[in-house]
Each structure stands twice: as structure tokens, then as C-alpha cells.
Amino acid sequence: MTVTPASPDIRHFRTLFISDVHLGSRAAKAGFLIDFLRHHEAETIVLVGDIVDGWRLKRNWYWPQAFNDVTQKLLRKARKGTRIIYIPGNHDEFLRDFPGMHFGGVEVAERIIHEAADGRRYLVLHGDEFDVVVRHARIVAYLGDWAYDAAIAINVVFAAIRRKLGLPYWSFSSWAKQQVKTAVNFIGEFQKVVAEEARRNGADGVICGHIHHAVITEIDGIRYINSGDWVESCTAIAEHHDGTMELITWQRMASAPVEMLPVSRRELAVDVREPVDAEAA
């Protein structure tokens, strides 16, 4: 069923891919996501894992009204005809016990094959099963999670200062991760392994999340797409009705007056025939 846009300000897509929202974490930018969902409609929305952060909720319960608003917004879209598929990640792994189940119109699946409008087949999964640290050294993963919380806390302070100075949002944690990624060489290896999994499944590409690094690129003939996150970069992947994939970065604040809201910054509009690395855009 096609969802008809209610306003000329609303963009309509065939599919939206959203991951790593981390509801339950103080770093989750629920306001940004609500605003994004208000301005974007799709026939299908795929939630690519870590939408709810069970790890943090176990340590310290944090669930403000904004998190309920995100949940209700998605359920409302489902009631109006949007197909919503939830692929659990490692932070919301409790949902992996319910593959094939429906909750309020939301389907739960371990992974799916998504056939795009141009005929390309994409393996869609969260990606944590290819993270050696998460799979084989959970205590290290938890320590890394704690360090990430610290970086996010610094990020909150930076954001508040920049907001008071009238400067645009800038992510300290994303910048810090970018500085060390060459040394640890984790992101590149993760991408190669996930792309190879797509090849083993007979797919033309893969769409995943997990590492909070949004990109559309080509790896050895396989299209690799990562939807990023909603704690640092506020990104999503949108499939147009012709199969073109677009990486959108959303930098609006739902609570701000309309006249103060910057226009959506579309980092990358990629035609599937011309693979581009989003980092180079």
C-alpha cells in the first residue's frame, strides 16, 4: 500500500532504512528522528537493529516521553499502511527470540533479502555477528560501550556550547572515532566481511548498521550500504522508486521554531550505477 504524502514538504520513498537509534540511552537523538519521520514517508521502513538499547536500560533505566513519541510515530505509520520490519541488533537482541512475530504491525526478522526497484537484491542485517569483539569477548564489548558513553557525554557538552553560540551541530564522538579508525582498521575489515556475506547469499549488495559509520560504496563488486546511527550522525538510507539509494543526514531539531530549522542536508544522492563513498562527498 502506497502512503500518500500529506504535505509538499514530505518526501516519499519506496523504502527507508534506519538503524542504531539506541532508545534507552541519553545520547539518542529522539527529537531529530521524530522530525525526520514527520518529513519522510515510505511504503516500507526497515529498522536495522539497535533501535532499543537493552544494554543501557539494564544498567540504568532511562525512558523519557520523546522515546515513547518515536515508538508511537512508527506504530502510527504501521497502522496507516507502512510495512515496518524490525531486524534486531546486539543491543536489542532480546527480540531475536521472536523471529516471524508481529507486534503492533511491526514484523520481526533476523535478516531479510530486499529486492530494490531496479532488481538489485540486498542482504539486510544489523551486522554485529561479524564484529569479533561482540561475538567472542563480550566483556570487552561492554567496556567499549562504557568508553563510548564517556565520548557521548563529552559530545553533549560540546553540543550545548555550540548551540548557545549559534553554531551548527558537530559530533565530538564521531570526530574522535574518525581519528582512530585508520589505526584500528576495524571499519574497513568489517565492511569487507559483511560484503562477502552478501556474496555468499547471492545478493548484489548489503545494507547494515552496527558500526555507526554511514556510507554507500562498492566493495569488490558488492554494493555496501551502512545506515549510520541516531546518536551521532543522524543518518538514514532512502530507496527511491527507481532503486536509487540516497544517504540522508538530518540536522533539524523538532523542538526548535520552524524559522530556525536548517534545511535537511542530503549528504549523498547516489545512482546505483555510480557507486560513491559517502565520506568523499
Results as ranks from 00 to 15, higher is better:
Phe186Lys: 07
Ile112Leu: 06
Ile112Thr: 07
Gly49Cys: 07
Trp146Arg: 11
Gly54Val: 14
Ala116Met: 06
Leu247Trp: 02
Ala195Met: 06
Ile51Val: 10
His102Ile: 13
Arg273Leu: 03
Tyr224Glu: 01
Ile187Asp: 01
Phe130Ile: 11
Val193Gly: 14
Val21Pro: 05
Ser264Ala: 14
Arg26Leu: 13
Pro8Ser: 10
Ala117Ser: 07
Lys164Val: 15
Ala153Val: 15
Gly188Phe: 04
Ile113Arg: 08
Asp131Gly: 05
Glu41Pro: 02
Pro8Ile: 14
Gly166Ile: 09
Asp145Thr: 08
Gly144Tyr: 01
Glu110Ile: 12
Glu129Ile: 07
Ala160Val: 03
Arg265Leu: 11
Gly49Val: 05
Arg138Asp: 13
Glu43Asn: 14
Gly89Met: 00
Arg200Lys: 13
Arg199Tyr: 04
Glu129Leu: 12
Leu95Glu: 08
Glu218Pro: 01
Arg265Lys: 12
Gly104Asp: 05
His213Cys: 05
Gly105Phe: 06
Thr71Val: 15
Ile187Pro: 00
Phe32Ala: 15
Gly81Asp: 10
Phe158Asn: 04
Ala151Tyr: 05
Lys58Arg: 14
Leu95Trp: 12
Gln178Lys: 10
Gln251Tyr: 12
Glu274Asn: 08
Arg38Ile: 13
Val140Leu: 15
His22Leu: 11
Pro8Asp: 12
Lys192Pro: 03
Pro88Val: 00
Asp97Trp: 09
Ala203Phe: 03
Leu16Tyr: 06
Thr4Gln: 14
Gly24Asn: 10
His241Glu: 08
Trp175Pro: 02
Asp131Tyr: 07
Glu115Lys: 13
Ile152Phe: 09
Val21Arg: 04
Val263Glu: 15
Ile45Lys: 01
His136Gln: 14
Arg76Gly: 15
Tyr224Met: 01
Met253Phe: 13
Glu246Leu: 00
Asp20Glu: 08
Gly119Asp: 02
Thr235Gln: 03
Ile10Asn: 14
Ser255Ala: 14
Leu123Gly: 12
Ser171Leu: 01
Arg135Leu: 06
Ala238Tyr: 01
Arg138Lys: 11
Pro8Gly: 04
Gly202Arg: 02
Ala6Tyr: 06
Gly228Ile: 00
Met1Thr: 15
Ile219Ala: 00
Glu43Met: 13
Pro275Ile: 00
Lys80Cys: 09
Lys80Ala: 13
Ile161Val: 12
Asp145Trp: 09
Arg200Pro: 08
Leu57His: 03
Ala176Pro: 00
His12Phe: 08
Tyr142Asn: 09
Tyr86Ile: 02
Ser227Ile: 02
Gly119Trp: 00
Gly228His: 00
Thr15Leu: 11
Ile154Leu: 12
Ala159Met: 11
Phe190Lys: 01
Ala116Asp: 10
His241Pro: 08
Arg111Ala: 10
Gly188Cys: 04
Glu197Trp: 14
His240Val: 00
Val258Ala: 14
Val48Thr: 10
Pro5Leu: 06
Ala109Trp: 01
